[in-house]
């Protein structure tokens, strides 16, 4: 049975919230609110996330890993190169002086952290992404879009719910 995509645009978050909660409570065949519902908004809106339910964000783990790798890599590189640079002595200091090395370790700690966080962001947020099947430029302007994927049969039902909550516009497209 083929799938269809529906995109409904709303004027404000309250309406969108109402739609989402109704969709979630509804029992439409071939539609699972957790997987087949995507809310698109022009601004970051914590409430949307709230009413969509907790979805753990994993970027922090990238951060931790990146920072630690960066720091460790830096210290190994620095201390290792000092020890192997023909052991050149410098102004009465040890060959591998810890305090100055920590400065660069710190910098690389941050560098690793930032780089890998950004990498993690791209991975977690699924970027760069191809265009989703239905997209409206209105979403980046001032409207909230609700994109659902459902089986052919339930389209009418969904449309009904969308219109009920004063959808400004409803787009439909065949899915893959």
């Amino acid at each position: 049975m083929s799938k269809r995509y529906l995109l409904a645009l709303y004027n404000n978050f309250d309406e969108a919230e109402a739609v989402v909660s109704e969709l979630r409570n509804s029992d439409i065949k071939g539609f699972d609110a957790a997987d087949d519902l995507v809310v698109k908004s022009p601004i970051e809106h914590p409430e949307v996330e709230e009413f969509l339910g907790e979805k753990p964000v994993k970027v922090q783990w990238f951060t931790l890993g990146g920072a630690l790798t960066g720091g460790l890599l830096a210290f190994t590189l620095i201390a290792g190169s000092q020890a192997s640079f023909y052991s050149q002595m410098k102004g009465g200091k040890p060959i591998v002086p810890i305090p100055p090395d920590l400065v660069l370790t710190y910098e690389m700690f941050i560098l690793g952290g930032v780089y890998i966080t950004v990498l993690g962001f791209l991975i977690c947020a699924g970027l760069p992404a191809r265009r989703s099947p239905l997209y409206s430029a209105k979403v980046s302007e001032d409207q909230i879009g609700i994109l659902v994927k459902a089986e052919d049969g339930s389209v009418a039902k969904l449309r009904e719910i969308f219109t009920k909550h004063k959808a400004l516009e409803i787009q439909e497209e065949a899915g893959r």
Binding site: V38, V39, K40, S41, P42, E44, H45, V48, E49, L52, K55, V57, V59, F121, C124, A125, G126, L127, P128, A129, R130, R131, S132, Y135, V139, S140, G145, L147
Partner: peptide, 11 residues
Amino acid sequence: GWEGTDRQWRN
């Protein structure tokens, strides 16, 4: 390909 989905905003 930013679309302002909730997943994107969250991350």
